[in-house]
Design a protein around this nucleic acid. Structure first.
Lengths: 151, 151
DNA sequence: CAATTGCATAGTAAATCAATCGTGAAAAGT
DNA sequence: ACTTTTCACGATTGATTTACTATGCAATTG
């Protein structure tokens, strides 16, 4: 039922980029530092986010990463599905990763699983980066104390 | 985000027992056959269900397993938590398996995860075996013809 | 007492996870 | 042009988990 570290890290990174959308690129080292992610591991993840077209990279001095599209066009659902696989608790109720199950026609609890997948999918697919940041339970300003340096 | 086979199998077995609550014990071989579970594997799982006090066993001829309490006193939530761990997508929003996260105070998407965990937990904790069986979207008899609808 | 059932532990092959390492290539600033 | 700074890419690793399988023993009952 849990997200992998990879998925968690990907979300952290992408939300940091969303907060700085429109600004200059943020290098991996900085993304790693701010979000407490092993740098070498984050490299892979960013690469993966890049092939998924969620971010763009700029090599060289004053390079780094930026979002490839506005934060209101990226949902948590897309990202979680990419890194973590299906949102459904079992494959037989997944829309995106469906796999049939031998018990499908007689399963007693399949409808509960379907409900679970629908609830989670609805939540995650509506959760655009901008919406989520806006709805965060603390104000933007609270952060200013912690990012005294750089960027 | 997925249930392990172990959890799936445990649910299958326990629902079969729920359907026959009040009747004679059902041997593992039968539970395995009906639910398409490797017998040897199911043995372990039943043992686990036993230490969790969800089932009782009767060894010997005409032995097998029965539920240890009525089907309206067992929820899917308990079983999934036991076999699969937390219902929450990340530990930092779990009530039962909480683990702190270094980013907790600045995390942008924690509230979404909390919502997800609350929805799923509500659903699973209300899902008693008897309720789930009663609400199953098909009658016992008309299992044929259900295949192939839009998935 | 013999057949039938569960009990308990050990083992294992494969996959997945969470990184880490070693270069290489591209871009800017000077 | 050169050097620094950044990302790119593939390989490797160690630990853990998953999904079983194997073997032998203990309890119960017809």
């Amino acid at each position: 039922m849990q997200l992998s570290m990879r998925t968690d890290y990907a979300l952290r990174a992408v939300f940091t980029l969303a907060e700085h959308y429109g600004g200059p690129p943020i290098p991996i080292v900085e993304l790693a530092r701010r979000n407490d992610i092993p740098k070498r591991f984050l490299e892979q993840i960013m690469l993966d986010l890049k092939t998924g077209k969620w971010v763009k990279s700029h090599p060289g001095k004053s390079g780094g990463y930026v979002l490839a599209k506005p934060p209101n066009r990226i949902t948590m659902g897309e990202i979680v599905r990419h890194f973590n696989g299906s949102l459904a608790p079992i494959h037989c109720v997944s829309l995106t990763h469906y796999k049939r199950c031998s018990q499908e026609s007689v399963c007693r609890f399949r409808h509960v699983m379907r409900d679970a997948r629908n609830l989670v999918a609805l939540l995650m697919d509506r959760a655009t980066l901008s919406e989520v940041i806006r709805a965060a339970p603390f104000a933007y300003q609270d952060l200013n104390g912690m990012e005294g340096d750089g960027i």
